[in-house]
């Protein structure tokens, strides 16, 4: 077992884990943060994207021990329970950016990272290019792209990153 200490959604967490525990398993099974999903076995779908030190990473392809000492944000960390949604979440709701919702947490975490890197005025082409690591089986992407463009703009007028 290995002892790890990290910050998850702003809260310090300490745990003993088997080193082979994936970050996504740790989040879902140990911390019961089940908003982060697992959609594939090949690191390709992006349903598991979380932020580690503010950067989008695939939590299915990271060991929990590799997150030791780092700061992790999951979809649950974007807005507190009962509080207004994060502008990117609100944009997905407003623009019908989801159907079954399985890919949505990963899409939103990827989108927030994208806005941090490329700003609030995103072209369709940029958004589509940046979504190459996130697969959706339902929507055909059209409304996801619309949602991200709108969410990016809304984030400019919000105090939430």
């Amino acid at each position: 077992m290995a002892k790890i200490s990290l910050i998850v959604n702003g809260n310090p967490v300490t745990a003993n884990v088997d080193p082979r525990t994936l970050l996504v398993q740790f989040l879902r099974e140990h911390l019961r943060l089940t908003g982060t999903h697992v959609g594939c076995d090949t690191s390709q779908c992006g349903a598991c994207v979380v932020h580690v030190d503010g950067k989008a990473v695939k939590s299915c392809t990271t060991l929990a021990v590799m997150a030791d000492g780092h700061e992790v944000t999951t979809i649950e960390g974007l807005a507190a329970d009962g509080a207004p949604l994060h502008p990117m979440q609100e944009a997905f709701r407003e623009n019908h950016g989801l159907q079954c919702g399985f890919c949505t947490p990963g899409m939103i975490m990827t989108a927030v990272d994208l806005v941090k890197r490329k700003g609030h005025d995103l072209s369709d082409a940029t958004i589509r290019e940046e979504l190459e690591g996130n697969l959706c089986r339902c929507t055909g992407y059209q409304n996801i792209v619309l949602s991200i463009a709108a969410g990016a703009k809304a984030m400019a007028n919000s105090d939430r990153a």
């Binding site: 994207v49 950067k55 989008a56 695939k58 990827t110 940046e130 190459e132 690591g133």
Partner: peptide, 8 residues
Amino acid sequence: GDPAVRHK
């Protein structure tokens, strides 16, 4: 790869 792959 994709942005998340490039971060790691």
